[in-house]
Lab assay of single mutants.
Amino acid sequence: DVEPGKFYKGVVTRIEKYGASINLNEQVRGLLRPRDMISLRLENLNVGDEIIVQAIDVRPEKREIDFKYIP
């Protein structure tokens, strides 16, 4: 289970102007929005990149997770 405040290694699977889709595994994925990137710009991400993200909002009833990137 993903817990708010914990850090996870994820893989960038899609990049859109509203954010990047991050997969932690086949069943768990979430969104990294541009506003939640401290020192990383969306255009510097590539599909397949592995990054460390922090879960900031977990809504299991909607199967949604928001991530934050902290270098």
Rank of each mutant, 00 (worst) to 15 (best):
V58Q: 03
E43H: 10
Y69D: 02
Q27Y: 14
D57E: 14
R35D: 10
M37T: 04
F7M: 07
T13H: 08
D49L: 05
E50D: 08
N23M: 15
L42M: 08
Q27A: 13
P71T: 07
P60C: 09
N23K: 15
V58W: 09
I51L: 09
R63E: 11
K9G: 03
N44G: 08
E16F: 15
L45K: 02
G30A: 04
F67K: 03
G48W: 04
D36N: 14
P4R: 12
P4V: 15
E50T: 14
V58M: 05
D57K: 15
L45M: 07
A20L: 07
R29E: 12
I70M: 11
G30H: 03
P34M: 08
Q54K: 08
G48P: 05
P34E: 11
V2E: 04
K6D: 02
F67A: 02
G19P: 01
L40P: 01
V47E: 05
Q27C: 14
V58I: 10
D36R: 03
V47F: 01
V11Q: 05
R33C: 07
N25F: 08
I65C: 08
G19R: 03
D66P: 01
K62I: 09
D49T: 05
T13W: 06
E16V: 07
R59C: 07
V2C: 08
F67R: 02
K17Y: 13
V11M: 09
Q54C: 12
I52Y: 11
F67C: 06
E16A: 12
E26G: 13
E3K: 14
V28A: 05
I65W: 12
N23G: 07
E16N: 15
R29L: 10
G19K: 03
R63Q: 14
P34H: 07
R41H: 09
Y18R: 12
D66R: 15
S39I: 09
S21K: 09
I15W: 02
E16K: 10
L45V: 06
L31H: 05
N44R: 06
E3N: 06
Q27S: 14
P4Q: 11
K6Y: 06
E61Q: 09
G10L: 06
A20D: 02
D1F: 14
V58D: 04
D36A: 05
G10A: 10
N25A: 09
D57Q: 14
L45A: 00
V12R: 00
I56L: 12
Q27L: 12
K6L: 09
Y8C: 11
V11H: 06
R63L: 12
N44W: 13
M37K: 02
N25T: 12
T13A: 08
L40C: 10
G48A: 02
Q54E: 05
R41D: 08
E43W: 11
R14S: 12
K6Q: 08
D1C: 15
R29F: 13
I65N: 02
V58H: 05
D1V: 14
F67V: 04
Y18E: 13
I52R: 06
S21L: 15
V47I: 13
I22G: 02
E61R: 06
P60W: 12
I22Q: 01
S39G: 15
V47T: 03
L31S: 03
V53A: 01
L40M: 09
V12M: 00
V28N: 06
A20M: 05
A20E: 02
V12D: 01
G5T: 02
G48S: 03
R41Q: 10
I22C: 05
V47H: 01
I38E: 10
V58A: 05
L40W: 04
I52H: 04
G10K: 00
G10F: 08
N46F: 11
P71S: 09
E43V: 08
G10M: 05
K9D: 01
F7C: 12
S21G: 05
I52K: 04
N46E: 11
A20T: 03
I22R: 00
P60A: 11
I15L: 07
P4E: 11
R63G: 15
P4S: 10
I52W: 15
I52F: 09
N44Q: 14
L45E: 00
P34R: 09
N44M: 13
V47S: 02
N44A: 11
R41N: 09
T13R: 03
K68Y: 07
D57W: 11
S39N: 14
R14Q: 12
Y8E: 00
I65E: 02
L31C: 14
I70T: 11
S21R: 13
F7D: 02
S21Y: 15
K9I: 11
Q27N: 15
V2R: 03
E50P: 08
S21D: 09
N46V: 11
V47D: 01
Y18P: 01
A20Y: 09
K68M: 13
I56Q: 05
V11F: 08
K62Y: 09
L31D: 03
P60F: 09
N46Q: 13
L31A: 02
V28S: 05
V47N: 02
L24N: 02
D57Y: 14
N23T: 14
R41F: 08
T13F: 06
R33A: 06
P4M: 13
E3G: 04
F67W: 07
E26V: 09
L24S: 01
I56M: 11
M37H: 04
G19M: 05
G48H: 02
V58T: 05
E3P: 15
E26M: 11
D66H: 12
N25Q: 06
P71H: 09
K62S: 13
D49I: 06
E50N: 09
R59S: 07
P4I: 15
R33S: 07
R59T: 05
L32K: 02
P60K: 11
D57I: 12
K62M: 12
I52M: 10
E3S: 10
V53E: 00
K17T: 12
D36Q: 04
R63M: 14
A55C: 15
L32P: 01
I22W: 07
I15G: 00
R33M: 03
V2A: 04
S39H: 13
V2D: 01
P71Q: 07
I15H: 01
Y69C: 07
G19D: 06
R59W: 07
K17P: 14
I56G: 05
I56N: 03
L24R: 00
A55I: 14
L45H: 01
G5C: 12
G5E: 04
N46G: 08
R33N: 04
N44E: 15
G5L: 07
L24I: 14
V28F: 10
D36K: 03
V2I: 15
N44T: 09
Y18M: 11
D1G: 14
P34G: 07
V47L: 11
R29A: 14
V47W: 02
V53D: 00
D49P: 00
L42F: 07
G10P: 00
E50M: 13
A55P: 03
D1T: 14
R29Q: 15
I56D: 01
E3F: 12
G30E: 03
L24E: 01
R29D: 09
Q27I: 12
K17D: 12
E64D: 06
G30S: 01
G10Y: 04
K6G: 07
S39P: 15
V11A: 02
I56Y: 13
E26A: 14
K68V: 07
I70C: 12
D57M: 14
Y69W: 07
E16S: 15
P60N: 10
E50W: 15
P34C: 08
A20G: 02
E16L: 12
P71G: 13
L40H: 05
I65Q: 03
A55L: 07
E64S: 08
K9F: 08
K17N: 11
K17R: 13
R41I: 09
R59Q: 06
E43G: 07
S21T: 15
P60T: 10
S39K: 12
P71K: 07
V53F: 04
